[in-house]
Nucleic acid binder design. Structure first.
Lengths: 200, 200
DNA sequence: GCCGATCTTGCAGTGTCTGCAGTTTTGCGC
DNA sequence: GCGCAAAACTGCAGACACTGCAAGATCGGC
């Protein structure tokens, strides 16, 4: 599958728009930046911007959607005999451990924290991740589309990741994010029936 | 705390706007309805609409935010010696069992399914529910704000509820929603380490 | 009944977002 | 290379969402 020039160019434009939107939102503020500025920075017309995204907010969190797809792909590549949650944990560690990517991600989460109107779009991005995860988990476990386990697991994992990053950010980002991620996944693994007795 | 006339009137206006928005979105479609129509239906000026909600979409899912607060309050009223997840399960059963309320809820979820641009706002409403749940669970378990269990549990439960309703809707709404809710909460309770061996 | 606080409203203005129609670019067969 | 159909980009016009501001209406306490 050689992706044609056409598609590659579209992807480049899409990324340029997303990056410009994120950049401008961080520097100038979400409300202040205009679609015209984003379009200019990506060298397209304002009208073209709307061929790619239906709003400024969507463009800002575009990178998240890509990361979501990427996580799912990494998950699909884990050894098949590995327990699902172990695979998930490994992938999440990879995502957090990948320094440049992680830095972008954190920047985005921090922006969302300071611009509440981005919250809905950010959550929608997580939902996209969830859909991908669901499909991969279903395949790995050999379960069908009607089974609840893959969907519930994917949803719970993404929620837990969200809690982990939020908490980490609220604690002024000290301590390691990896540790927090580990603990939230542990909670899901052992079950939420009752709170763990020791240092949850 | 006798809520003054002022506050009661505000609440009535807010509800009227929310109800009108939902009604119009269902009958005319989200894109077709205008703020002016919503405002007219609630007998206020269009400008006033924006004193209550920052967008049409937010108004449409306003009832969800109320339901969220209500769930948290019901949870707080459960016997203190009841295991947390049992309380959660009971509350979710109450919410689903409350016929008129459940009907509104389902109508809204169905609307969101047919109008994808509502998804982000719907998720934001769930996030609001999550925040309330987190606070109540923390109090019930005697855990502090730094503990992960309350936040992870609240997030997982809301995600699971979302999965349950989505699945139920996709299966053309046959079978009972209560049963699906039970099964997703069971999954969270026993842990997601590996798929259940029998009929997940 | 008066006064401060709060809520509502109209107005003007900026910017988002959409449909449409014309131009440019790309992929592909020749 | 050449031409042609599909797809992408662009400008334009217009409807509408949304905001700040200042004036008017309403409420709660004294």
């Amino acid at each position: 599958m050689t992706t044609g020039l056409r598609e590659r160019k579209k992807l480049r434009t899409r990324r340029a728009l997303g990056a410009a939107a994120l950049e401008l939102a961080v520097t100038h503020g979400l409300a202040e930046m205009t679609v015209e500025q984003i379009a200019d920075a990506a060298d397209v017309s304002p009208r073209t911007f709307f061929n790619y995204f239906s709003s400024k907010e969507e463009a800002v969190v575009a990178a998240d959607v890509e990361r979501a797809r990427d996580s799912a792909e990494r998950l699909a590549e884990r050894p098949l005999d590995e327990p699902v949650l172990d695979s998930v944990r490994a992938v999440m560690h990879e995502m957090v451990g990948d320094a440049p990517r992680s830095r972008e991600w954190i920047a985005q989460v921090r922006l969302v924290k300071s611009e509440p109107s981005l919250v809905p779009q950010q959550l929608a991005a997580y939902a996209a991740a969830e859909a991908h995860l669901t499909a991969v988990i279903a395949e790995r476990t050999g379960l069908g589309a009607q089974d609840l386990y893959p969907a519930v697991t994917a949803a719970a994992v993404m929620s837990a990741m969200r809690v982990a990053t939020t908490r980490w950010l609220e604690s002024d980002e000290h301590g390691d994010l990896v540790g927090v991620v580990d603990r939230v996944i542990d909670l899901l693994a052992v079950g939420l029936q009752s709170p763990p007795s020791r240092a949850p």
